[in-house]
Design a protein around this nucleic acid. Sequence first.
DNA 1: GCGCAAACGTACCGTACGGTACGGTACTTG
DNA 2: CAAGTACCGTACCGTACGGTACGTTTGCGC
Lengths: 206, 206
Amino acid sequence: MSAPATDSTAYSPRQNDVLDSALRLLVEGGEKALTTAGLARAANCSKESLYKWFGDRDGLLSAVIEFQARKVRVPAEAEGLLNAAELRQRLEEFARELLAVLASDASLALNRLAIGQASGEGARLGRLLQERGRRGIGRRIEALLEAARDAGLLAFDEAGEAYATLYGLIVTDQHLRWLLGEKPDAASFGPRAEKAVAAFLRLHGI
Amino acid sequence: MSAPATDSTAYSPRQNDVLDSALRLLVEGGEKALTTAGLARAANCSKESLYKWFGDRDGLLSAVIEFQARKVRVPAEAEGLLNAAELRQRLEEFARELLAVLASDASLALNRLAIGQASGEGARLGRLLQERGRRGIGRRIEALLEAARDAGLLAFDEAGEAYATLYGLIVTDQHLRWLLGEKPDAASFGPRAEKAVAAFLRLHGI
DNA sequence: GCGCAAACGTACCGTACGGTACGGTACTTG
DNA sequence: CAAGTACCGTACCGTACGGTACGTTTGCGC
């Protein structure tokens, strides 16, 4: 859909390679590992090029976040559900995906980066991450919830609030624990997703 | 022999003053603002004393976390509830307190610090924060939940799981949003607490 | 083949930080 | 009062980073 001609974020293949190296450094060693000299060495480019392309270190960090957000872009859901079993299945799938995304190395690294920057600074990266990442997912699932309500399968006042409840039931404090260094256990995603959706349906199902 | 032993309460009043200054610096400017020279200036002490007391910068960071955890220590609940209305009130109070703690400057600063350190390092500070902070609150509220179950007011299989559900309903993704820089709105804590507890009771209440 | 722009590699600069060393000072202890 | 201890303030060292400058190389249009 969106032509790659969106000039604001038009990065050449070479620049995308560099951003890929930057993300890898970030995942492996955190913000401290993402130095201009280190990135230049890892990506076989010159520091001068980095400053030419991204302005300064902050621009580089923002570019990495946008780079990753662009990769995660999920295609819109096919809009053809309707019975209760299908809704449950959709929600469980969403829950598993959400847990997998939040537990991924890249997501954790970028969230850690943005959270580290949020102190003292104006939370630029935090807003960026919020806007590019969670917001998209939220809009998508809220649309699903509203469709289900129109079909008489769910009851709630406000989609945003219902989504917040669903999110809380799925994620609880796992995300924070992962951010603090706990290792994710992918095998637990499935059961957790099922339980969370069951609780959600008990709260908002018809 | 390196660090003066993480022996907890072995800090003098002078050292506690210094840790207080350190926490203030951390709250105001994040990890970058907590430099040895800056702390020495802010606390009117010498850098040499800092290294003598805390070993190195990491020891200082750990000491700040323990220092704050010791201050937050909440007294055990009075164990004399029983009817459903009181349980609801207790849970709502807990929810409001939890939101207030998570939204506090000190908590956010320390969580940001530990999360920043969690990349690349072995998540020492993360485990420390988890152990000293959340764990204590969790044990306390789980005891309340089990007491309520014994009194026939709640139904659940495992207290840890029920607590996770309650936590998720209360906090949703607010904690992360705050960590990313969003400003907390204290006026929303009350309504949110009531709704979360209402949902929890609909799930687990008799 | 030629010229030109882009980008590479490296050397360099200023700064700021973690950590150490040292002289001076106040306060205790015999 | 003398010896000792704990601490302050400051100066210092090595290192590492962000950012800049420059000479060299690569690739593409003509």
